[in-house]
Amino acid sequence: MSGKRLLLAAALAAGLVASPLPMANQVAAADSLVTHHEFQANCSVTTHRPDDPIVYPGLSGASHMHTFLGNTTTNATSTLGSLLAGGTSCKVPDDRSAYWFPTMYNGNTMIVPSGPQVVYYKSGVLDYTTVKPFPQGLRFVVGSPTATKDEFQHAPGAVEGFECGDSFHNWDFPTSLCPAGTQVNIRYQAPSCWDGIHLDSPDHQSHLAYPVNLVCPASHPVPVPMLEFKIAFPVDGDLSQVRLSSGRGYSWHYDFFNAWDPPTLAALVKHCINGGLQCDARGFDQYKPDRGAALDEHYRLPRA
């Protein structure tokens, strides 16, 4: 984090030096400025199961309860083959990936995210033009169900912890009352540098790494899309009885099993991440409509 702050400070200092630039030039250049390099997967909840095909493959009921998004068939025995034969709750029909995270409860009532949730696909490295799609079958776990509060807060994937209303940076569920009608949101970023070889690893994490100073380390040289789950849980008021199936808020973690159609994923990565756009699930940036969309009106890749 301090590295980023330093860069910002350096940029501000440089900006003062640069101030004599004519204002008109800055305005003219604004439309071509790259401020984002991302697209979204918008996928709604499919089911809840005590299954985890990455950590406890083949063993139904072996996990704490998970809430699943995306592929409609995900269970303990899921493989790439079974996922590719399944349906999806994502807006893009050719995204059959499985996304899941621990189920939230308020007391004993399950809190089910409503409607499409946002999974960002971003650049985790400075040079967003080098990000490549990850291969089918790549799977990993982000974060740790056994993390302490301190580990959760200082994890490289931490963004702002849990938030509701105006309360941010909570590293467990907010202890103040969440205003009526607000939701509890969590964002957490995945590592985005791949070793280029393994689709999985014994701890389901070490085949990926977080960038170091916005560059992929030599051990994990391939920049792939950085997932950022943004999940909204419809619960407000007193959160004292809110928990995850894996424990306290700081046990937050999530899993991803890639079952995208490769050409569709490649088109979105190229157009939105490499192309420096802020795309929706169709690969369209509403602020730069002239750049067009990666997918057609049915969220499918136009094919010749």
Partner: peptide
């Protein structure tokens, strides 16, 4: 995120900003 901030700065001040 920092990456986006940095990329934005890079675009505006590509020549001036020699570090980072």
């Amino acid at each position: 995120v920092g990456a986006q901030r940095c990329a934005l700065v890079g675009a505006v001040l590509a020549v001036l900003l020699l570090t980072g």
